[in-house]
Design a protein around this nucleic acid. Structure first.
Lengths: 209, 209
DNA sequence: TAAAGACCTACCCATTTGGCCGATACCGGG
DNA sequence: CCCGGTATCGGCCAAATGGGTAGGTCTTTA
């Protein structure tokens, strides 16, 4: 049984969510209020999940909810690309869905959230990943050479500051081989030291920091 | 009804997952094979979800799965902090859970994945957020030490892949001094190689890529 | 089947790195 | 005035690094 508290400024939305959740026998709606009231009631009602419908992420309700350290939080919002929602994940919010999510998605998100998991809509994920996955940049700079999976694996360990010997033992290969791979990496990346290789690799999105 | 294909190298794990999923009436196991075989069967069986148990993210199976563009993919792995798993999200993987996830979590993740949502374990989320959320850094490692302007200058050149001698001539100082600065940087950043110092420096926002 | 590429191993050797000892000099605060 | 932090030099030395060349499997591709 998962107890759910609904917070939505629109009464229509509340009614919609209520009827939606009512179709799932393991859900129990412990309350349904405008956002402010829902937040106020959270302490007392202690629901497993708080389902919030936010008109816009700029809404102060978002920050309010974030600051109150309410943890199992499912948020419906329009602007899934706003960095605000991404930040929200850093402080309690367990799920972010667009307001036009299907009922199956909302139900699944609440269930997953209740178990402690974090749920995202693919769009939200993309906006999170875009800064760190520069994505398919194929500038024919000096090379355009693609590293083999093995080389990427090695480069990743180089970035960790590991020595050739250490890398060798982790991969179960000889350190001679590691040196060979690193030489190939240098050639393909146009680098001449492992440190330079790392920065180039990061710039090209091959590895992350 | 959600059809699930299981891929795990260990027969014990397969049996465990099978019995776990069997308890959910809306799940239907369409197959259970070692990882390679599971990937091969994916086309034919066309499951709604592919559940993979990966021993380690370095496993070539991961890259294999990523390249095959199989989309509804739930991955169980040990090393949830590895950037590899984060990258995996960029190409198909819909869920990443630690291998010691509870049965509730696994079930919830499969259900959410089937509806198209992306599911993460909180740990995985943290490793994704850390690069773009500079805040919340409160690891009193050996670090928290602030680099002097000169040291930052040196670190920046180290990141470019320059050698001590080269840095020395650019700064108009002796290479001994450069080595001294780098030693201080190592101590303050808790690094033990110039490459590691660079990645730590990038992580802490001291330098940029 | 042949060719190509990825992957692994091995050797030699010059250069670089990083740790360790020490020293001088400047500057600001107690 | 002395002390601590910063910046600058010096030498010594073990270890790691990077370049070159040369071989060997294995899988995929043509």
């Amino acid at each position: 049984m998962t107890s759910v508290l609904i917070g939505a400024s629109s009464e229509v939305v509340r009614a919609g969510l209520e009827s939606l959740l009512a179709t799932v026998p393991t859900f129990k709606i412990v309350g349904s209020f405008p956002i402010g009231a829902a937040l106020a009631q959270f302490e007392e009602l202690q629901p497993d999940v708080l389902l919030l419908d936010l008109e816009s992420p700029e809404d102060e309700s978002m920050s309010l909810a974030m600051e109150s350290e309410i943890s199992p939080l499912v948020v419906l919002t329009d602007n899934t690309e706003n960095s605000l929602v991404v930040e929200a994940l850093g402080s309690g919010t367990r799920a972010i869905l667009p307001r036009d999510a299907t009922s199956e998605e909302i139900v699944a998100a609440i269930q997953a959230t209740a178990t402690g998991l974090v749920v995202l809509h693919p769009h939200v994920l993309r906006s999170m990943l875009s800064p760190i996955l520069p994505g398919e940049e194929s500038e024919p700079d000096p090379s355009d050479q693609t590293l083999t999976p093995r080389e990427i694996e090695v480069l990743r360990m180089v970035a960790e500051g590991l020595g050739n010997k250490e890398i060798a033992s982790r991969l179960g290969i000889s350190d001679h081989t590691v040196k060979f791979h690193i030489s190939s990496i240098f050639a393909k990346l146009g680098a001449s030291s492992r440190t330079e290789a790392v920065t180039v690799g990061i710039r090209q999105g091959l590895i992350m920091v």
